[in-house]
C-alpha cells in the first residue's frame, strides 16, 4: 500500500513505516509529511509526564481504554531515554500496555529520545502529525521520566498531565520551577500509599503561590495505576479541560504559538544547513585561525554570516 493513502485510511503498517522514515531523517519523510499536513489538526494531543516510576505507562494504559470505551481512536507515543554512549535504548513502556496491542482503534509506538534532552524525541513532533492524519481522535504522548526542566511536552501537547507520587514531599518544592508550571492537570498516582493527601496539600500550596491569579487553577486528581481507580475521573477532567480550551479559544492560541515555533525552528535548521555546507572551507579556515589566535570566533561568525547574505 502506498504510504500516504495508507495513513489516511489508518493502516498501521503505513503509519509505522513513515514514523521510521521520520526517525531516520530520511529525505522522503518530509515530502510525505507535506502531503499529509492538510489532514492534521483534528486530534487532541495529551501529554503525560512525570518522574521515572511515577506510573505514567500504567495511566496511559487505563486512559487509552477509557477513550476506547467512548469510541475514540487513540495513538500512543511512548518515549524512553536513548543511551548517550551506545545510541541504543531499551523501550519498555509497552509492558504496561499489553492488552491494548490487539485493539484495532489503538496504535502504540515506542521511541528512543535519540539525543533530545527535553523529555521528547525530535521525531515525536512529526510522528504526532502522522497519527493525527491517520484519524486518531486522541494522541497520548508519554515523555521520558523527567526531572525538573524537561518541559518540551508543552510544545507538543494541547493538554499536559503531570503524574506525581507520594513520598516525594520536599521534591515537590524542588521541582516547582520546572515541570510544575506546565501542568493543566495534576495526577497523584499511587494514592493508596501513605502521604497522598500531604502531596495534594503541597501541590495546592504551590499553586496558591502562583502570581497569575487569573489563570485557571489546574485540577488535582488521585489515581491508583495498578487498579485503575480514579481513571474515570481523570478521563472526565481531561474532557472538561479540553472543552474549556476549545470554548475559550485557548486551544487555537496554543496551536498558533506552536506552529510559529515550529516554523522558526525549521527556518533555523534549513538555513543553518545551507550556510554550513556552502561555507565549509571558510569555517575550516577560520577554525584554524581561531586556534592560532589570529581571529576570535565572534568576529569569524559575523564575517561568515555577512558573506552568507550575498
Amino acid at each position: 500500500m502506498d504510504i500516504v493513502p495508507g495513513i489516511l485510511k489508518g493502516d498501521k503498517r503505513s503509519i509505522a513505516r513513515l514514523i521510521t522514515l521520520i526517525e531516520n531523517q530520511a529525505d522522503e519523510a518530509r515530502d510525505l509529511l507535506k502531503q499529509l499536513y492538510k489532514f492534521t489538526g483534528n486530534a487532541i494531543t495529551l501529554g503525560i509526564t512525570g518522574p521515572p516510576g511515577a506510573g505514567k505507562s500504567s495511566i496511559v494504559n487505563f486512559l487509552a481504554k477509557k477513550f476506547r470505551e467512548n469510541n475514540k481512536k487513540v495513538g500512543v507515543i511512548a518515549i524512553d531515554p536513548t543511551s548517550p554512549f551506545s545510541g541504543g535504548a531499551l523501550l519498555g513502556d509497552r509492558i504496561r500496555m499489553q492488552d491494548l496491542t490487539l485493539d484495532d482503534g489503538i496504535y502504540i509506538r515506542s521511541m528512543g529520545s535519540r539525543g533530545a534532552l527535553g523529555g521528547l524525541s525530535r521525531a515525536s513532533y512529526d510522528a504526532v502529525k502522522v497519527l493525527d492524519a491517520a484519524g486518531m481522535d486522541y494522541i497520548i504522548i508519554e515523555t521520558v521520566g523527567v526531572g525538573q526542566s524537561e518541559v518540551d511536552i508543552i510544545k507538543l501537547a494541547d493538554i499536559v498531565a503531570l503524574v506525581l507520587i507520594p513520598g516525594m514531599g520536599d521534591e515537590v518544592q524542588a521541582i516547582k520551577a520546572g515541570v510544575m508550571e506546565i501542568a493543566d492537570i495534576f495526577v497523584v498516582n499511587k494514592s493508596d500509599m501513605d502521604g497522598a493527601d500531604r502531596l495534594i496539600t503541597e501541590i495546592q500550596m504551590n499553586l496558591d503561590l502562583n502570581q497569575d491569579k487569573n489563570k485557571v487553577k489546574p485540577p488535582i486528581l488521585k489515581t491508583v495505576g495498578t487498579t485503575g481507580e480514579g481513571i474515570a475521573d481523570l478521563y472526565k477532567t481531561i474532557i472538561d479541560v479540553q472543552k474549556q480550551l476549545q470554548d475559550s479559544g485557548m486551544l487555537t492560541n496554543k496551536r498558533k504559538t506552536r506552529i510559529n515555533q515550529e516554523l522558526q525552528e525549521l527556518i533555523r535548521e534549513i538555513h543553518l544547513k545551507q550556510i554550513i555546507s556552502s561555507f565549509e572551507t571558510q569555517i575550516r579556515i577560520f577554525t584554524e585561525k581561531a586556534l592560532n589566535k589570529e581571529i576570535d570566533p565572534y568576529s569569524a561568525a559575523v564575517y561568515i554570516l555577512e558573506n552568507a547574505k550575498l
Partner: peptide, 20 residues
C-alpha cells in the same frame, strides 16, 4: 546486550500471544 550495541529494543513483557 542489544541496547549496548546501539539497537533500540522494545520489550513487551511476559505471556504474549503470537498475535500480540
Amino acid at each position: 546486550a542489544l541496547r549496548d550495541s546501539g539497537m533500540e529494543v522494545i520489550y513487551t513483557g511476559l505471556r504474549q500471544t503470537p498475535e500480540q
